[in-house]
Design a protein around this nucleic acid. Structure first.
Lengths: 255, 255
DNA sequence: CGTTGACTTGAGTCTATTCAAATCCTGTGG
DNA sequence: CCACAGGATTTGAATAGACTCAAGTCAACG
């Protein structure tokens, strides 16, 4: 069931960090950490690989670990008593999740599962908790990190309230533009994961997603073939999308 | 326009805190603070009274102050480019707002206005910012505070996604039950503010609110006359509401 | 007593959902 | 390499939920 979680060889023979650890080190939560404290984390770190659909933890589980994504995609979700699932977020490499549980009574307030084959580093939640208690810098790093979550969620609430389905999709695409590319006028990229998951992520049904995407195609002459997206004029799309939002277009820093 | 903001007489002749300051002191953000740091805040504190509709700050304003509500009600909102308003939260005495701006680049990410005559204490944002930098305890207090915001927002997103209008109203009423009263089976209370504002707070139109409340009346035999709410059987209501939510009924700690 | 704002109700419309069915795609066994 | 099962996606039709616009009711207030 659970596979063996090997301790990571912290540094190789030339004294360079194991690449995933280097990525971890550069995450904002760890970037300002002293070498001393970081070495506690790096020694306790375990690298995992999980296949599509694997559960990392469930809502209401005691939080033993928190996770850093090395590669792949992870879905965070909450499940209602009636069994429906609300997708809260979908994240990829370079992001951390599950860490907020240490401030929520040590319980995960959402579940997490791998969307496709995913490589992760897991770290003991207790270690982060004590690091925050002991180190002021770590506490400030955590504060910045949670604060980013909060901003993102505020945006999410606004979008759910104000935007209709085509606009939410457009907004999603615009955020992908800035992730994948810079200020090009025309942009090409692939959807990062299944349309059905994007739909869930945006709080709509697959069928609604499909139809809303058609409408968006007509309204903004974007082109979507399979997972391949072409946006001939980003300004055109943002005009259609961003009127119902309180941020001006390059609504950076939210993702 | 702006009225004079008097410095507060910190303590009276018997050395007891001015009552609003005592309330401030017991807020979780200040409760664990050293007397020394708290006195910086209490000396900089200014008491304000604002009439209905008064703007405290606008979205995108530089955050000079953050606020503690002594009495009355305050609305937090965001405004879209097209001019529509999304109500993010409505808060009352004992709560703090505007403090998160110090983690959002010193800019308010939402506007705030008084819903009715409201008494507040305002405190310099810069003071909180430096207190967090200087004091580990204050940083931890802030962490707990933001973390509560985050939990609340996660719940908000779930509710917007999963619940329909009557359920959102029911959920709102259930949360009021636990605020106003304890575990009584039958509960009576008054709606805390206008129905139109509740509607906005729940992300729906006034008309939808009115109709959804009617439906809720029929389905759960609650009784609402004007602002007076009677809930004959709380369990009955929670059964109708909470199936579409990931929390079991006494979903405490969220408000 | 008339005005105003809050609230409700009616009618029509739009959006998103549900249920069903058709297509498309992809990985797998032969 | 090909046919096929099963999931992903799309489309159609009917329905439900929420919104808009318009009009009516009610109560507080000057």
């Amino acid at each position: 069931m659970t596979q063996v979680a090997p301790q990571i060889q912290t540094k190789n023979h030339t004294g360079v960090y194991h690449p995933p650890l280097a990525a971890l080190r550069s995450h904002s939560l760890f970037a300002d950490m002293s070498d001393e404290i970081f070495s506690d984390f790096s020694h306790a770190a375990q690298e995992l690989s999980r296949s599509k659909g694997a559960i990392l933890f469930m809502q209401d589980d005691p939080a033993e670990w928190f996770y850093f994504i090395v590669s792949g995609w992870v879905k965070l979700f909450r499940e209602t008593l009636e069994g429906d699932e609300a997708v809260i977020d979908v994240m990829t490499s370079g992001h951390i999740f599950g860490e907020t549980a240490i401030l929520d009574g040590g319980i995960h307030t959402m579940g997490a599962s791998a969307v496709e084959r995913t490589v992760l580093i897991r770290l003991p939640a207790s270690l982060l908790k004590s690091a925050i208690t002991k180190s002021h810098d770590v506490a400030l790093g955590m504060l910045a990190s949670i604060s980013r979550h909060r901003r993102q969620q505020t945006q999410e609430i606004e979008n759910l309230n104000m935007q209709n389905a085509p606009q939410r999709i457009g907004c999603f695409l615009l955020r992908l533009c800035r992730t994948n590319d810079i200020e090009a006028e025309t942009t090409n990229f692939n959807l990062p994961y299944d349309k059905s998951l994007i739909a869930a992520r945006l709080g709509m049904q697959c069928e609604t997603f499909s139809r809303a995407l058609n409408k968006l195609r007509k309204q903004t002459n974007i082109d979507v073939k399979g997972a391949a997206v072409t946006i001939p004029d980003v300004a055109d799309l943002s005009e259609y999308v961003c009127g119902r939002c309180s941020n001006e277009y390059p609504c950076s820093d939210l993702h």
